[in-house]
Design a protein around this nucleic acid. Structure first.
Lengths: 223, 223
DNA sequence: TTAAAATTTTAGATTTGTCTAAAAATATTT
DNA sequence: AAATATTTTTAGACAAATCTAAAATTTTAA
């Protein structure tokens, strides 16, 4: 049961939308894929016929288990190819998306398994997104400690490990609070300190001890 | 001017046929691509419109310089991907064709240039076929068909004409691969079969049909 | 709770690449 | 050179994926 590239793009998009929205609407798929609502309706009929989603006219839709399995396989391919492009071919992390969009549709389990092995069975892609394994299992890591957070990726502070007032007033002074947009710009192996950039462009130097208590949630970027 | 995968398959096929046949016929393309003659005629009209070939109804056709340039670019991609699959991902040389047929259609000059560099700008692919460079230049090699090869001279297998998996797995079973040292010990005019000796002294009888697809490079030190 | 607005689906058309069957052109053979 | 065979092209149809415009349905709001 191989899918066409168009079907795969719909499957992947619906999967990502239903994580956020639960039930997915025709218009949200249309605007994500930059296509017309009519085209989405047409494709929904095909995907329903192939028993990949639960769908009733005018009522919204979502992938069933079979559809989710398919989506995870496509996401696995996409993220492994992105890892290959950045780690092996030295693409910059912001240049890989378009090419990975093409490579993810290559049909060969042998290829993707060999690629996975060659890359050392990576758990996360260059954007920090988790890579599903061959069985579709994916490490669910919504919270990442700032010391482990990938460089140059914007995250959102969602948890602070220490509740001590010293800590919290320091954070307050640096204008860091729950919801602040943060990216790690540099990591110094020497003393494990890091440079952090807040959304308003103020550079702050945060010590490792502080960073250990900051938990950051990745934003929902399409990757 | 990007081409569709279908267009690229026709361009590549016509290029390979016109090396052998000079002028190419509708039927030869149809049988190579396992499609109908009517489909070939349809595609010829499109390729003529895109100024990739010289074609008059009922008179045969061939690629012009623009078409050849396109063909060499596709062949470059195909052979670089085959090299990647065998040298890096450790595919067997008889398993790569189908996957490379897909990968050759990925559209990204940056990708193929980075891949070329990563592989060390190889001159020949795992089947011994020359890889065109970014400008379309291709190294020419003195290749002699096994049926024409002088008796008792040790040569090195450098190319296999047929990519059929039957052929390749037969060769694999006989321990013949690119780089194998081979000598022709006897030629039987009767049925054009030949006796071939491999470097490890195993005698194999190879039929003429098989030999026709084996190209052997003369080694300078062999006598 | 109707009227207006937004969303979704249907209807009909288009493009790409394919097919079969039949017609046209070329090649072969008697 | 005429009859036959082969090759090639045309004609008409189909599936996939898309579009626009109009109709159907649901949601929102006066």
């Amino acid at each position: 049961m191989p899918f066409t590239a168009a079907e795969e793009n719909y499957i992947k998009t619906i999967f990502q939308l239903q994580i956020i929205e639960g039930m997915v609407s025709t218009n949200s798929v249309a605007s994500t894929l930059e296509t017309s609502a009519a085209s989405v309706t047409d494709m929904l009929k095909k995907l329903k016929l192939k028993k990949l989603l639960v769908y009733e006219k005018y009522k919204g839709f979502k992938l069933n288990n079979e559809g989710k399995r398919a989506a995870l396989s496509i996401i696995r391919k996409h993220r492994l190819w992105e890892t290959f492009l950045v780690n092996i071919l030295h693409f910059k992390w912001d240049e890989v998306h378009e090419v990975a969009e093409q490579l993810e549709h290559i049909q060969s389990n042998q290829l993707i398994d060999h690629l996975d092995h060659f890359l050392g069975n990576p758990q996360f892609d260059p954007h920090g997104d988790p890579i599903p394994d061959a069985a579709g299992k994916m490490p669910i890591m919504t919270q990442i400690n700032l010391t482990k957070f990938p460089l140059h990726i914007v995250g959102e502070v969602c948890s602070v490990g220490s509740q001590s007032s010293d800590m919290l007033s320091l954070l307050s002074h640096k204008h860091i609070e729950i919801g602040s947009k943060i990216s790690v710009e540099q990591f110094f192996a020497f003393d494990e300190s890091i440079d952090v950039k807040i959304n308003n462009s103020i550079m702050v130097n945060i010590s490792a001890k502080l960073a250990q208590h900051l938990y950051v949630k990745k934003l929902n970027y399409a990757s």
